[in-house]
Write a protein that binds this DNA or RNA. Sequence first.
DNA 1: ACAAAAGTGTTGAGAGTACACCCATGC
DNA 2: GCATGGGTGTACTCTCAACACTTTTGT
Lengths: 237, 237
Amino acid sequence: MKKNFDEQRTMNHEQMLAVTVDVVLFTIRERKLAVLLVRRINEPFDGMWALPGGFVEKNESVDEAALRELQEETNVSRVYLEQLYTFGDPDRDPRGRVITVSYYALINWENFQLRARTDTSEAKWFPVQELPKLAFDHRDIIRYALERLQHKINYTTICFQLLPKKFALSELQQAYEIILNQKLDKRNFRKKMIQLHILKDTGEMKTDGGPQRPAKLYSFTDVRVVKLQEKGIIVPF
Amino acid sequence: MKKNFDEQRTMNHEQMLAVTVDVVLFTIRERKLAVLLVRRINEPFDGMWALPGGFVEKNESVDEAALRELQEETNVSRVYLEQLYTFGDPDRDPRGRVITVSYYALINWENFQLRARTDTSEAKWFPVQELPKLAFDHRDIIRYALERLQHKINYTTICFQLLPKKFALSELQQAYEIILNQKLDKRNFRKKMIQLHILKDTGEMKTDGGPQRPAKLYSFTDVRVVKLQEKGIIVPF
DNA sequence: ACAAAAGTGTTGAGAGTACACCCATGC
DNA sequence: GCATGGGTGTACTCTCAACACTTTTGT
């Protein structure tokens, strides 16, 4: 049955759907890539871990909804937040028709404290390799977010968001190794990073470094995430 | 005001929204990259050109909705269809709160006939460089789709979807040049394509070629769109 | 014969990759 | 003095980019 395009374009309460946002918040903790999960305290999936998220309100954009949900969990001021994908399977939510727009975000663990929650539910970091059973299709969403992150560190400066303002080159390399889940050559990595001209030598040294030679501390020349014209920072795709 | 996560997770009619899909259907016609537009015959934007699209129904996935809308315009059997981005600005639609999930699709112009429309509205191909004034934020959606397409032909075999089953190498090169909007070196292009091992020599020749040497006809080894491990087919990013 | 597109190799530059040793510090 | 991570250079390979002429056909 062919339908008239403009009939469909007419507002119609029958066709209204619930729309949520879900945010995959990444950080690096204890040399592992981790995501923030919250424990549900209602049906469906009561007691199960899930991504932080919630309904999009009438008067806010979808991006604003994602940011708001994020702020309810963390004391973030500025985060890197990027839309990922919209999951729209009719039976992805047992309560009925709920479409979710997924996002991912990156923070430096030390710069943010998890907000003390006003209710009894918990929020906790889980290494991406050790996820618990998750509500809805949230495992798929995390897998998708991880793929996006792994691709994107190769041609953008996105990785910076996970690091403190000043950092040693070895810390940057470690972040790449953790996200890509592979060892990288130290000399080639440093050569590449330096020739990209995205690093600034702060002149400072890492003081707490333990029984070894102190490392130079660098910062990034651009505050914002930059798309590099180069073919890739580390791993070619 | 902090809200309880699980309160937000509860279904609530107040928070129901309208969700549409919009499809940017690309093809190559008369040596130009073109998109299919339909003329609106209702308010808002009555008489203005817009992307084919419509509301997501209760019982179909968002992907299915996009496919259905596409099939209402074209006699497609199999199309390459990929989700693009979700546009969720609260005032992107003057009728009220409508979120749209955008898609893009690629077809070979000769393989598909536009479906004769049952209503009086028109559907027409427009070169992407010569778009008319568009309804809603559809110009942004097309711009976004074009960027995605331009990136993606560099590391996938997506471009094949625009060509007939059998084609000359120069036709493939032309498709790349049209999409990227730049000239490419013939020898380097052919060398690259051949060493990717994605082309099969059909043994046939182009017969209607006019007053010039007949071109070999090739086909693709994989029917499906393939992600190449290489660093890029043509233009490095 | 001539117009028009098809087809074909080589060279130089730059980027990627592999690889091993000395340095500065805390204990 | 020794354990720990910080810091450095070179040689080989491979890919990319630039570039011009001959071939085959229709008219």
